[in-house]
Design a protein around this nucleic acid. Sequence first.
DNA 1: CCGTATCCTACGGGATACTG
DNA 2: CAGTATCCCGTAGGATACGG
Lengths: 124, 124
Amino acid sequence: MQPNVYEANCPSRQLLDRIGDTWSVLVVVTLAEGIHRYTELAKRIEGVSPKMLTQTLRGLERDGLITRTVHPVVPPRVDYALTELGHSLYALVEGLEKWAETHIEDVQAARAAYDATVQAYSAK
Amino acid sequence: MQPNVYEANCPSRQLLDRIGDTWSVLVVVTLAEGIHRYTELAKRIEGVSPKMLTQTLRGLERDGLITRTVHPVVPPRVDYALTELGHSLYALVEGLEKWAETHIEDVQAARAAYDATVQAYSAK
DNA sequence: CCGTATCCTACGGGATACTG
DNA sequence: CAGTATCCCGTAGGATACGG
């Protein structure tokens, strides 16, 4: 018997929520390259608002996927880094990238075929 | 160099959108068990509205992940099944489930620790 | 520099009623 | 049975201004 993915609070679903969150994934990918400061992340991840960046970072920190280190200096300096758990999650994301690269052409071909068919029907 | 996940239209991002879509994942998981009719899916996937179910099915069909077979009988009968591509995607989802099961305890422990800390601060 | 606080809008998606 | 069509609402999240 499978884990019950039909229930919203099962582990798989919680993971899916994370993976499905674009900003979370982007942060993880960026931090996989190494430690980054808040502003570096903001600059690197184009289009993210301070609100969403903070929210995302807090969520990842809460889940034990990243660490947040405050250096008590002026001006303030805050470093974010992937934990071991975070790295293992990143491995998953790499797996997704691999799949996407391998199969994206099939998907695009399918879309083209599908759209052509639909258009054929609506055109007649 | 990594694929540029920072661009919204890169393959990885398109896959992420699918994986992040709860209904799509549930449909794929359900169809992994075998062919299902529309109503069967609706019943199996609790809480899904006809609108979302149809929308999800169309999207998956367009991407070549499932097939839709209409039997010209009365009353109508429509079968949905996973394609080969769909099965390979399901393999990915199984990988996610595996990760979730393996690491969920770490995540929950991290959350508990984080919440305890936050509460300690706001309580003082 | 590293965030919070506030406002505001678009739109995802639920509920429902209806049709071929 | 297998969907469409319509209405409607909550809320995710963008923009912005400000604070420690």
